[in-house]
């Protein structure tokens, strides 16, 4: 019986939503193959999170409690994860296909001889015992199936919201503290400070189930207030088109598209966004798409499941009102 590893990405002591989705996906695959799931938690907070990780599918939890995990750039995480890989003998690692975590996977892959597949939205066991990973590429125009060669470890980066996180009622996992001795190189790049500017009560667009996005059609910065009010009734994240971030109306971090972030929420609601191909490249794989635009010819309507042709200044506040009253 082999172990598969799941690297848990976390913030403020809480596993990110995507990490719980990873655990459930790993658990389902492991059950079919008779493997077990071991989570890896780097940095302080493992003991508080253990039970929760167990209930989402972790049979075991490798942890390294040192502040160094995030005190230096990337390498301490690489070295601790390498220790977990050694301790477990795992051939498969699941990781969150998000920016900083991809760096950890890339560096470790070079060290241990792995192949990395990023942005995976579907997984199935292949005939040869290797995983077959599905990706939606070119902004969702094409779907590919990829695998990692038999002589390499398989590092699979999973996209947000591709798998549902499900509690299976299991208890706390067995915990194993990792013994990590950092190399000199690992402490060469120091994190001097962390600037947190995002609203703490709004989810990040990368993991939010619902994302509300505003574009040039908003007309000015203040109109993002309308989008935020809509978002807050839905518990949604707020994103923007490049026209809006370029204008300085909303931070670049929230830019959706080819040169911004790729999101795949259950529901995307775009207002005042035309749906340029570069924008679609970042949101076309959303499970449901809603467009609010005053131009019936706007390309975004071609991919919309529900479209409202109208002035967003009317439609968005009205929608917020309607949703508030339906929530009761």
């Amino acid at each position: 019986m082999a172990e598969v590893l799941v690297l848990i990405d976390h913030a403020d002591g809480e596993p990110r939503k995507l990490s719980l989705q990873l655990l459930t996906a790993a658990k389902q695959l492991a059950e079919d193959s008779g493997d077990t799931v071991a989570a890896v938690w780097l940095g302080p907070g493992a003991s508080d999170a253990a039970e929760r990780l167990g209930s989402f599918g972790a049979d075991k939890l490798y942890h390294w409690d040192s502040d160094d995990a995030y005190g230096y750039v990337t390498l301490p995480q690489v070295e601790a994860l390498e220790a977990a890989l050694e301790a477990s003998g795992a051939d498969t690692l699941f990781f969150a296909s998000s920016n900083h975590v991809k760096d950890v996977a890339a560096r470790l892959a070079i060290r241990v001889g792995a192949g990395v597949i990023t942005d995976v939205t579907g997984l199935a066991p292949g005939d040869d015992g290797r995983l077959v990973a599905t990706k939606e590429v070119f902004g969702g125009e094409k779907i590919t199936e990829s695998s990692v060669a038999a002589d390499a470890k398989q590092f699979i980066g999973i996209a947000s919201n591709a798998f549902a996180a499900e509690e299976d009622g299991s208890g706390a996992p067995e915990t194993v503290a990792l013994d990590v001795e950092l190399s000199e190189a690992a402490t060469a790049a120091t994190v001097v400070s962390v600037e947190k500017v995002a609203s703490a009560d709004r989810p990040d667009i990368g993991e939010a189930a619902i994302v509300v996005a505003g574009g040039r059609g908003l007309g000015d910065e203040s109109k993002f207030g309308l989008m935020e009010q809509l978002a807050d009734v839905l518990g949604a994240g707020v994103g923007a088109s490049r026209a809006a971030t370029d204008a300085g109306w909303y931070p670049h971090r929230y830019q959706i598209g080819q040169t911004g972030r790729t999101i795949s929420p259950m529901l995307y609601i775009g207002a005042g966004i035309s749906g340029a191909i570069q924008h679609r490249a970042g949101m076309q794989t959303s499970q449901h798409i809603v467009a609010i635009n005053k131009d019936p010819e706007a390309p975004i309507f071609q991919i919309a499941d529900f479209g409202v042709v109208g002035d967003l200044n009317q439609v968005v506040p009205k929608l917020t009102e309607e949703l508030t009253s339906r929530k009761g």
Partner: peptide
Amino acid sequence: AAASVHEVRDRPPKEAGTIVEDDGSGSAAA
């Protein structure tokens, strides 16, 4: 290549969505 693609297909075409026009009454938002 440790990671390689062995199948490519087109994403299935999306069904046309519902499009409603806002006539100013707020019924579209509803």
